[in-house]
Structure formats: C-alpha cells, structure tokens
Write a protein that binds this DNA or RNA. Structure first.
Length: 311
RNA sequence: GGACGGGUGGGUGAGUGGCUAAAACCAGCAGACUGUAAAUCUGCCGCUCCUUGCGGGCUACGGAGGUUCGAAUCCUCCCCCGUCCA
C-alpha cells in the first residue's frame, strides 16, 4: 500500500564517500540521512568513526548517530528497531530517508529482518566463555554439536563468538538455530528500496584510507581519545575496540609508539574495507558506481538512478 | 687485524643429516558470517605440469666447492651484518 514510499541506501566500504554522497542527495531530494554504522551509534567517539561534524551537514538532519553511551551494549536487533522507527518518522514528515550503510549486518537486519531469536544473555555468555577458556574452544563446539548438529556443522570450531551465540539461542529458545531461521524473518515492509553501491578501484581506495587516517589524526583524533579516557570512559568498552581507538588507547598508555599505531590503523582499516566489499558484493539489486561518493560524476549517476526509479 | 654471534620463503623467526617446499606469527589474496559485526572465523599463500593426486617436475635456506645413498643442517674457502678486542 505504501509502496510509493522510498528508501535510498548508499552502501560501500569505509572511506568510499558515502556520507558526502548522502548529503548531496539529501539536498537535492528533500532527504534526511540515517547512519547504518555500528560505531557511529556511540556518543563521544567522533573523529575515528567518521561522523560528519554538525557544521558540515549543511542543515541535513542525521539520525542514529550518538544514540548510546559507550558502555551500553548495542546490537543488530536494537538497530533494526530504532531504524524502523526513524524511517517511519522521516516518511511521516514527507522526507526521503537516505541510509549510509557501512555495517553489512545492520543493513541486512533492517532490510531482511532477523529471525525471532532471543536477545543475548550476558550471564549465559559469561558462563560459556569461561568454560571455553578453561576447556578450550573445541569443547564449546562439542556442546553445540550435541545441542544443534546443523549449526555446529556450519560454524567453525574456532569461531567461539558464533558458537556461543548458537548455543545461547538453542538454550534460551529451546530450538536449534536452523529451525528458527526456517520460520523466516520480519523484513522491512512498505518501502521501495533503492540501493546504490560505491565500489571505487581498490588501489585508490587504499590510498584514500591511508591518507584519511593521517587527516583524522591532524584534526585531533588522538586528543579525542585522551579526552575519552580522562572522562573515565572504560578503556575496554565496546567502541574502544573499533579501528584506531584501541591503538591510540595503547599509545596513551605508553604501550605503542605513534608511528606504529598509525601504520597499524591504516592496515587494519584496509583489511576492514576488504571485508565490507566481500559482504556487500552479495547484496542483491544494487546499482553499482565505480567511483567515490564525493565525485560529481558519482552524484550525477546516483541522481539519474533515483529519478529513473520514480516511474 | 683478532674473537665471538649471525646470514632461512614478502617480513619477523623456528629448524642443526632423511618424517622439510621448510614450524609459528605477520603481511598479501580469497571467502564465511541472522543480536559483539570497525567484531569473529575459514581457506590459499616458491614456480610449473597434468590423468587434480596424501600426484609429477623444477628452483630454494648469503656464494662457490666438498663429505654423504641423502645437507638449510657437517667440512673448506669467500662475501656480507652485529657485538667485543686491537
């Protein structure tokens, strides 16, 4: 019924220029930006997560940025709930939602939905994790094999994180993961989704990543990290695990020299970009553009694509 | 000039006669991933051939010789690097 409502999704690896393209499109088509990024949801982690500073947003509203405290657990399920609400609100205002998606899992959770599985349970995980630490990861995998043969065969014995989640689902819901998955997922309804994928040449992307890390440093990234620590934010909280923050935390603790940290951040970011590309490649119905989002030709291409979809 | 220590695959580095194309880690490449996802994990990783097999050939542990059925591993000489003595 509401198929006339549209949702533009811009997906692509880090540093491909999603934010710039989103703002450009929002200005031309009465849009608002919604971040689909697992790190930008955290407050105070600004420079390294690539949040566009308010002053550079050209008046375009941005959503799902700065929505939780650093010590809060945030998940794909939570993202889905909040994003669904935000999309409704934007449409109710008669505006066009434009999603900037770097976190493939969150995008899929929103668009395709998640199975009706129980949310994570910290105590259960803690118990399992301890057992894994004591008896080795193979032991956990054995437990999973007993409880849910099918997912045990799909999950590598070394992948403790996924093994624990599968055991958790089985224990909490009483059902194996495969059974839950078979029952389908609650996909996003009522939107015509227009996916635009940014796929700049790998070599150029990597050069940009390297350069962007130094640019971020010049704009005060290290000071930001220092401020976070001074403020008492737990150095082991989740956002501190993200690219750059962990390295700079070590620099400030005197465990690493700055040059080495920069080198590692650049390298880890390139590896991350590769993983994003691997994930997004499988995404269906994407209008791929082989350039950066901040290039005029890319914006023109994207606008043409959106216009063509109007009919 | 002398005394030691060392030179191993893109990097670090193990190996001190056969089980070694050579551990492990990193990098690189490819991939998986339905509530930690900027996370986590998996495969490949000298060259080459095919009948794609726990397959064949070639090259490889600074260089050149040698010992041995067999050498990254032992011997000789040479070249580099580090530390110390002069």
């Amino acid at each position: 019924m509401n198929a006339h409502r549209r949702l533009v999704v811009i997906l692509g690896p880090t540093a491909s220029g999603k934010s710039a393209l989103a703002i450009a499109l929002a200005e031309r088509s009465n849009g608002e930006v919604v971040a689909c990024d697992s790190t930008q949801v955290y407050r105070y982690f600004d420079i390294g997560t690539g949040k566009v500073p308010a002053a550079e947003r050209r008046g375009i509203p941005h959503h799902l940025i700065d929505v939780v405290e650093p010590d809060e657990v945030f998940t794909a399920g939570e993202y889905r709930r909040r994003a669904t609400e935000v999309l409704e609100a934007i449409c109710a205002r008669g505006k066009l939602p434009i999603l900037t998606a770097g976190t493939g899992l969150y995008l899929r959770a929103l668009l395709d939905g998640l199975a009706d599985a129980p949310a994570r349970s910290e105590e259960l995980r803690e118990r399992l994790r301890q057992r894994g630490a004591r008896r080795g990861p193979e032991r956990l995998h054995q437990i999973l094999r007993r409880l849910d043969r099918e997912s045990a065969s799909r999950i590598a014995p070394g992948d403790t994180q996924k093994v624990i989640r599968a055991i958790e689902i089985r224990l909490l819901s009483g059902q194996p993961v495969s059974a839950l998955h078979q029952r389908g997922r609650a996909r996003l309804e009522g939107f015509q989704v227009l996916k635009i994928g940014l796929m700049p040449p790998r070599a150029t992307l990597y050069r940009r990543i390297d350069q962007r890390v130094t640019t971020m440093l010049e704009s005060g990234w290290l000071d930001e990290v220092k401020l976070l620590l001074d403020r008492g934010i737990t150095p082991t909280s989740k956002p501190f695990e993200s690219l750059g923050y962990s390295q700079f935390r070590d620099v400030l603790a005197g465990k690493m020299v700055l040059n080495e940290a920069i080198r590692q951040i650049q390298q880890a970011t390139r590896q991350y970009a590769k993983r994003q590309v691997t994930w997004f490649r499988k995404e269906h119905d994407v209008h791929w553009i082989e350039g950066f989002g901040d290039e005029a030709a890319t914006a023109a291409d994207a606008l043409r694509f959106i216009a063509a979809a109007e009919e």
